[in-house]
Amino acid sequence: MARWGMVIDLDRCTGCAACGTACKAENNIPFVDPEESARDRTINWMDIIPAEEHGEHNGGGPMMPRPCLQCDNPPCIKVCPVYATYLTPEGIVAQNFGRCIGCRFCMAACPYTVKYFNWHDYRRKDGFHLYENPDVSTRPAGVVEKCTFCHHRLQLARERARVEKRPFRAQDYVPACAETCPAEAIEFGDLDDHNSRVSRLKRSPRARSLLQELGTKPKVVYLVREHQNEIG
């Protein structure tokens, strides 16, 4: 069975946020109104965050995309009281919107702050709903949502393979962010397949996990930038 993972090359990444926009379109992520946004309630499964810290409130620094890190040892799953968030056999940290009771324990437990809450019913009925992706359910008020590695795309790819009467291949399945990245900075694939590009990149000396010290074993790995020191 595959173990899906992602490698984000920060040396290639330009911080353009195309991945985040693609993600919003693909996963029917509601845009919250400006008033809600001002209350810090924007939902960004693929958020663009500073890659380095420049001290409090200084802003800036190179930006990097941050999806759900899809930990192999996810702190969020442990604390869920109702099995609303769980690890699928293929290593995707899934979120069951229909089961979630909205206690937000997983949000409090996630060290990467990748979980988002529907403070209101953000589903739109003013025409924007016509642009929704029919493959992804929209979320009601009061539940937590997060990046699912575009899990529906995996299901679609499997179904397509079945219809075309051929075996399912790992390259049939790519999340929207990886597909969109104009700088080809996001690599996606099966980490257990040692020949796949993603697992080769993951073994690169530039590979780093976010907050590695926590032992969460993220399946989204970053390749750090190379620094050339000779320029003063």
Binding site: R39, D40, R41, T42, F117, N118, W119, H120, A141, G142
Partner: peptide, 9 residues
């Protein structure tokens, strides 16, 4: 919904 509180992300 819980949006009427001051809670946020």
């Amino acid at each position: 919904g819980l949006g009427v509180t001051g809670l946020n992300q």
